[in-house]
C-alpha cells in the first residue's frame, strides 16, 4: 500500500509558498523538480515553463522525470493574484486568470497522473485558497479560479483513488509571500484573523508535507491552514 515517495514536482516553485514546499520536501529527502515562469529555483531539476502551455508542461515533466526519476508527488502552486471588480475585469483578464490557475493545474495533473496510476501510487496537493471557499469581493476571477481548483480536486480524487493515488487541496489563508506583500491591504490582514497574524510559508509547506508524505486515507479533501479566516 505504501511506497515511500522519492521525488516531487512543484509548479511555481521558484518563490513564495512554492519555494517553501521545495525546501521542505528536499529536507524530507525527496528529489524535487520545479517548473516556473521565473528563473532562480533551488531545486534538483528546473524547467522554465509557462503553465498556460499544456504541451510545454507535459514536455517539461518528461524532461524532469529523466533527471530525477518518475514523479511520486505533485504540488501545484503556480498562480498570481490581481484585484478587479466584476464590472471592470475584461474577458482577457478572466481568461488569463483561469488559464493560469485552472488550466495550469489541470495541465500538471494530466502530465503526472498516467505515470502515477500505472505505478499504483502517488500523491497530489493543489494549492487552493481561503478565497476559493468564501469568495473575494476584490478579485472575483481569482476566487472563482481557486474554487474551480477545489472542485477539480474533489472530482479527480475519486477517479484515481482505486489506483492508490491521493489528491487533496491545501487552501492557505493570507500568507507572508511576495504575492501578498504587494497587496495594499497587507497590514490589515493580521487583525482580521483569529490567529492574530498572517501565515508563514513554512507552515503551509508543513501542511503540504503532511498531505503528501503521510500514508493516510486523506483524499478529495480541502485542508485549510488559514489562521481561522474560514472554518
Amino acid at each position: 500500500m505504501s511506497v515511500a515517495p522519492a521525488t516531487a514536482l512543484v509548479t511555481g516553485g521558484a518563490s513564495g509558498i512554492g519555494a517553501a514546499c521545495v525546501r521542505a520536501l528536499r529536507e524530507q529527502g525527496l528529489l524535487v523538480g520545479v517548473i516556473d515562469l521565473a528563473d532562480g529555483a533551488e531545486a534538483d531539476a528546473f524547467m522554465q515553463v509557462d503553465v498556460r502551455d499544456a504541451a510545454a508542461v507535459a514536455a517539461a515533466v518528461t524532461e524532469i522525470e529523466g533527471l530525477i526519476g518518475p514523479i511520486d508527488c505533485l504540488v501545484t502552486t503556480a498562480g498570481y493574484y490581481r484585484e478587479g471588480s466584476i464590472t471592470e475585469l475584461s474577458v482577457a483578464d478572466w481568461q488569463d486568470m483561469l488559464a493560469v490557475h485552472v488550466g495550469g493545474t489541470t495541465a500538471a495533473f494530466r502530465a503526472v497522473l498516467p505515470g502515477m496510476t500505472s505505478r499504483g501510487h502517488g500523491a497530489i496537493c493543489a494549492i487552493g485558497s481561503e478565497l476559493g471557499l468564501c469568495g473575494d469581493p476584490f478579485a472575483p476571477h481569482y476566487a472563482a479560479a481557486k474554487g474551480a481548483i477545489h472542485a477539480l480536486v474533489k472530482s479527480v480524487a475519486p477517479e484515481v483513488a482505486s489506483a492508490n493515488v491521493r489528491v487533496n487541496v491545501i487552501a492557505p489563508g493570507p500568507t507572508d509571500t511576495p504575492l501578498l506583500r504587494d497587496d495594499p491591504n497587507f497590514a490589515s490582514y493580521s487583525s482580521t484573523l483569529p490567529l492574530g497574524r498572517i501565515i508563514q510559508p513554512d507552515e503551509i509547506a508543513a501542511a503540504v508535507c503532511f498531505v503528501l508524505l503521510e500514508d493516510t486515507t486523506l483524499t478529495g479533501q480541502v485542508v485549510s491552514p488559514n489562521g481561522g479566516a474560514v472554518m
Binding site: 474533489k154 507552515e203 501542511a207 503521510e214 486515507t217 486523506l218 491552514p225
Partner: peptide
C-alpha cells in the same frame, strides 16, 4: 493517528478550527 500527530505539531498553529477528514474520499466537503 498520523493526522492527529500533524495537528499536534508546531507548524499546525496555522490551522484554526479546521475539520480534517481522512475518509478515503467518501465525503468531500
Amino acid at each position: 493517528a498520523a493526522t492527529i500527530a500533524f495537528l499536534l505539531s508546531e507548524p499546525a498553529v496555522a490551522l484554526v478550527g479546521q475539520v480534517i477528514s481522512p475518509n478515503g474520499g467518501t465525503t468531500r466537503l
